[in-house]
Amino acid sequence: MKGEDIFVRYSRQIFIEEIGLEGQRKIMNAKVLVIGAGGLGSPVIQYLAAAGVGNLAVSDFDEVELHNLNRQIIHNERSVGVSKVESAEQFVKNLNQQVCFTGHHLKIDVSNADDLISAYDIIVDGSDNFATRYLVNDTCVKLRKPLVYGSILSFSGQVAVFNFQESRNLRDIFPEPPSDENLPDCDSLGVLGALPGIVGSMMANLVINIITDLPVPVNKLTLIDTFSWTFQAVDF
């Protein structure tokens, strides 16, 4: 893509004084790993690709199912039965061919977490289970990688930035994962389709803030309740 076309494409970001051309260059040089291409990963992938993140990687081991489509907006009916990583790659290519997409069709675990996470500047956790969340958190702490975290359930969501410039991490607010017994999840309690769009967009915004050296809230957990329409930041 020619320089003038790049400017036109990203002009509405470049026109923001706090970003400018230098900030856009940082975005285009960034290496971001999104773990999970589901409800949260979908808006994150969408907006990071739209912003022009130069190297965008996605890790997921699952396939698209019909019940995903109320909230996982990068997938469509033709994606059902296709791996989420493959579907995400097709979405990104259709949206922005200048983005270098890397798909990791795997389940992150203790055997591969270090190698996977070490290759990227910023990690985004859109996973849907506590085992993965704590593994990703602990690996980011060990490798000194900033982690943008989110979770959703029913009408409620959480967002935070962990381990950024020596800030606190997941274990500082929740030292141990809860017991697996009777854990609420989206399969049993559901999730309103627009909620992950709200939370995921906030996560994508935080990634851009980190890349472009804009203010980043640290040691704060933002609680989103779309039933009562309240937003609260909790220090930890």
Rank of each mutant, 00 (worst) to 15 (best):
M1Q: 10
E4N: 03
D5S: 12
D5H: 11
D5M: 10
F7M: 13
S11K: 06
I19Y: 01
G20D: 07
G23L: 05
Q24I: 05
Q24M: 02
K26G: 06
V34G: 02
V34R: 03
A37W: 07
L40D: 08
L40V: 05
G41R: 06
P43K: 00
Y47N: 05
A50M: 04
G54P: 02
D62C: 03
E65C: 07
Q72A: 07
I74D: 08
N76L: 03
S79G: 08
S87L: 03
Q90Y: 04
V92E: 08
L95T: 03
C100N: 15
L106H: 06
L106M: 12
D109N: 15
V110N: 04
V110K: 13
S111I: 00
A113H: 02
S118R: 11
A119G: 00
V124D: 11
D128T: 02
N129W: 10
F130E: 10
L135K: 05
V136I: 15
D138E: 13
K142A: 15
K142C: 09
K142T: 12
K142N: 14
R144H: 13
P146A: 10
I152N: 04
S154A: 04
F155L: 06
G157L: 09
Q158V: 05
A160Y: 04
V161T: 13
N163D: 13
E166G: 04
E166N: 15
S167P: 04
S167Q: 00
R168D: 12
R168Y: 09
N169D: 14
L170A: 11
D172H: 13
F174Y: 13
F174S: 06
F174K: 07
P178F: 12
S188M: 03
L195P: 03
P196C: 10
G197E: 07
V199I: 15
I210S: 09
I211Y: 00
T212K: 00
L214D: 09
V216Q: 08
P217Q: 12
N219P: 09
L221N: 05
F227L: 15
F227K: 14
S228Q: 13
S228D: 07
S228E: 07
Q232K: 12
A233S: 15
V234A: 05
F236P: 06
